[in-house]
Write a protein that binds this DNA or RNA. Structure first.
Lengths: 352, 352
DNA sequence: ATGGATTACGGGCACGTGCCCGTAAAGGTA
DNA sequence: TACCTTTACGGGCACGTGCCCGTAATCCAT
């Protein structure tokens, strides 16, 4: 069990090029102080023997810590959704720590554009080497991206994407397809004469994500010639009373609703309403593996939850930065997460 | 961005204990040559300052390669299921390579107990430091495990478990629950008067996995007072003609079968039969994300596939060995994989 | 007491890379 | 030519740990 002849180090390159290892090092990190001639020669040798630097030695020798920032929403009373990505980020942190990488997390208030902008400024001021960000507000993110490009700081988007800002990578759901899956599950045992209700509960006016999901949802009905009528409702308050009021009204107007689809994690509020008003025969589908939702899965009020592995998103996002900054390996631009289907029967094994 | 004061190395321990780093090293690797007195003193200091060895430096300094073996079934014409775990193993290999870990894969024929035994012998003879194994044959695995325990080689089971052989870790499905999920999906839109068919297609007499799944499947019917009659059939040949013959007979005897559940990845054979005999109204559920199955998902013949992330199983299995042998961190004994539900609508994002 | 074996420990090089510092060579100016 | 600046490169230490080798100290038998 001895080491195979992997003597392909800087020393070997230096020997072949008749220079010192210091010169090879200068070329490898393209620093100044090397004549064009020797630079070319060394580069040729590097390419020829497909030199792979030893990351162990490199990280050990360099005293510099690589520091990464993660900028995500804080958990609120409304939802602890973002605790999952945070978990993944911590997991990545633990793994990278031993290789000299530090991680710092910045949290902002999803209901405050200002707090988002503030934290962006703090992150940029601190001079991190790479940044993971949830691009919750489009304009601020646009400015942020421009600044990162200027400073050549790689940044990764998670959970939602802004495609035209060329981030290093996007890691998150394909929302349109995810709405499509929701429609499939919703109609799987739905009678033809029943109506379908789409519910969007959200304070924010910023409806980009929601529109994608609804679009996919409706596409399924088109593609499969589903005859059911679709009713939709927007609710701009998130408290139970307001939601209940709106829903009471809708169900009053439409006596024959057979299934409801909630476009985000607030499905538990709807579940609560259905349970209280004894309408649990209505099929209910929504998003995200948060505790309130799982409770209603368990109680047979919610039929399915659609999830996008938020934990993994955090983990992979950080790892994408690690790959570029430490390993210097390429990462894929778009990394769509699986569209997981969670039920009462399989949730106990679900790994976020 | 400077390194925090992490001067907690062997040198610091040595300084505090008034010994040399070599002596500290002997204690750390509990080698001989240290008096009980100094050993105790050093151990106290190590514990007190919660010393964490620098893996980078450790792997760099030690010339020894850590070598891991993976022993899994070969892909056959019957099924390419095992190409997924192999993928995960390769992925882990690439990641560990830079840290001085080598991986060697051994394949055996699922239809030949002898080839399994042969490969076990080869693996044991080569003296690996850790072994990943799919314990396909019980008796041979028992001997293997005994030998590993004797030689103190950690071993990990994937895909199926033999609980009483205390492997370092089991990574794979909870088969019983997985059958339970299958039953849920199968009955979700099934009419009460319809019968349900359980199909087991397998040459091997070794039915351990199958029994677990069927047990879970039936448990769902009990727990939920499902009135449907359950018909079961064992088919000991795997070729299409034999399967079709058996199924023709069963469908002849039972005119009102509304759904079929196949306990393994050969569901595509049944799908083929249903399609050819124009019985695609029968709901069909089976196992594993292999291409033939996905084709029938796409064609609306198979309704759902249940999967257990075989790729991840391979990856995590290798990583469990890495964790114990390199990082010296504890791993969980049982690691049940999520029970994933794959449909025509979400399969394109499924990540094995 | 003497010699030999055993035990307990320290010195110091090596792993492969990063990078500081020193210096010879080349170029520029008076 | 003398002096200074810039360019191009080499020497060599450091990172934290593994481990070989050498040796003083201790023990035991004669």
């Amino acid at each position: 069990m001895e080491k195979e002849n992997e003597l392909f180090g800087v020393k070997e390159i230096a020997r072949r090029a008749n220079v010192s290892t210091a010169t090879v090092d200068r070329v490898l990190h393209n620093r100044t102080g090397v004549s064009e001639k020797t630079k070319a020669k060394i580069n040729a040798i590097i390419k020829e023997m497909d030199y792979q630097p030893n990351i162990l030695a490199s990280r050990l020798a360099s005293r510099k810590i690589i520091s990464l920032a993660a900028l995500i929403p804080d958990v609120s009373e409304e939802t602890d959704f973002w605790s999952a990505p945070l978990n993944g980020i911590r997991r990545a942190e633990a793994e990278m720590k031993q290789y000299g990488v530090q991680v710092q997390v910045f949290l902002f208030d999803l209901n405050s554009k200002d707090s988002f902008a503030d934290q962006i400024r703090r992150v940029l001021d601190a001079g991190f080497h790479g940044i993971l960000i949830s691009p919750s507000f489009i304009e601020e993110t646009r400015k942020f991206a421009a600044e990162c490009v200027r400073r050549k700081i790689p940044y990764v988007f998670i959970d939602s994407d802004i495609p035209d800002l060329h981030s290093l990578s996007y890691i998150g759901p394909h929302l349109r397809k995810s709405g499509y899956v929701g429609a499939k599950l919703l109609t799987y045992r739905l009678e033809q004469e029943r109506k379908v209700l789409i519910i969007n509960i959200s304070k924010e006016i910023d409806n980009y994500n929601y529109l994608e999901i609804e679009d996919g949802f409706r596409a399924y009905f088109n593609d499969n010639n589903q005859p059911n009528e679709i009713v939709r409702i927007d609710i701009r308050e998130t408290d139970y009373q307001s939601v209940a009021r709106h829903l009471t009204y809708v169900f009053h107007l439409n006596k024959d609703i057979g299934a409801a689809f909630v476009t985000n994690s607030r499905v538990h509020t709807v579940a609560s309403f259905l349970k209280n008003s004894r309408r649990t025969h209505v099929s209910l589908i929504g998003y995200d593996f948060v505790r309130e939702n799982v409770d209603y899965l368990e109680a047979n009020v919610i039929d399915f939850l659609i999830c996008h592995r938020p934990d993994d998103q955090g983990y992979r996002g950080m790892m994408a930065l690690y790959q570029t900054l430490v390993v210097n390996a390429p990462v894929t631009r778009q990394n769509y997460m699986p569209i997981d289907i969670v039920t009462k029967e399989n949730y106990e094994f679900y790994q976020n």
